[in-house]
Design a protein around this nucleic acid. Sequence first.
DNA 1: TATAAGATTTACT
DNA 2: GTAAATCTTATAT
Length: 193
Amino acid sequence: MLKASYYLNPDVVFLAKDLIGKTLCTRINNKLTCGIITETEAYAGVVDKASHAYGGRRTHRTETMYNKGGVSYVYLCYGIHRLFNIVTNIKDEPHAVLVRAIYPTKGIKEIEKRRGLKFSPNFCVGPGKVSQALGIDLLHNNISLTGNELWLQDDKVNIKESDILVGPRIGIDYAGEDAKLPYRFWTEKRDFK
DNA sequence: TATAAGATTTACT
DNA sequence: GTAAATCTTATAT
């Protein structure tokens, strides 16, 4: 399991990249499901127009991001989808990494049941699908990532620097110039060993 | 209290 | 390609 100190790194963009290839696990309703993270986006706090915390905004919802790194930030989008983020950096620095896609490795039968679909290449590509696949709900907002319900681990999968692609974030056109920042990281790799 | 819009997905034309 | 689903949050009356 990744240590609590891992999430305190002040460079959220570095972490977003570093998280590619790590494994995200949940044990919800006593069902273990895991997947390798294949796509992330960084949300760089108060200076990032795309972030909920832009300009230092503090509300009931965004308060979670002001916590110390190493907790989850789950919120509802478009009234339908639960988006899962990893809160990073020290307390009062509202940085977060959005997990946009995973490649399922454990509990695939349970994931198929939750999604109501059979395994396919784009099975868990898209932030709403990731949460649904792993059983993450609003109940799991603001919980520790070093506990036994929701955590990350490094399975030492073989990801090379050249396997990681970089580009602008998605679905945040309202953020003006910041929508173009290269804060999105993903890999096309699927043969993890 | 009311209204508008959103870090999306899915189905339909 | 376009639109509907669906509800919380933020901002305004």
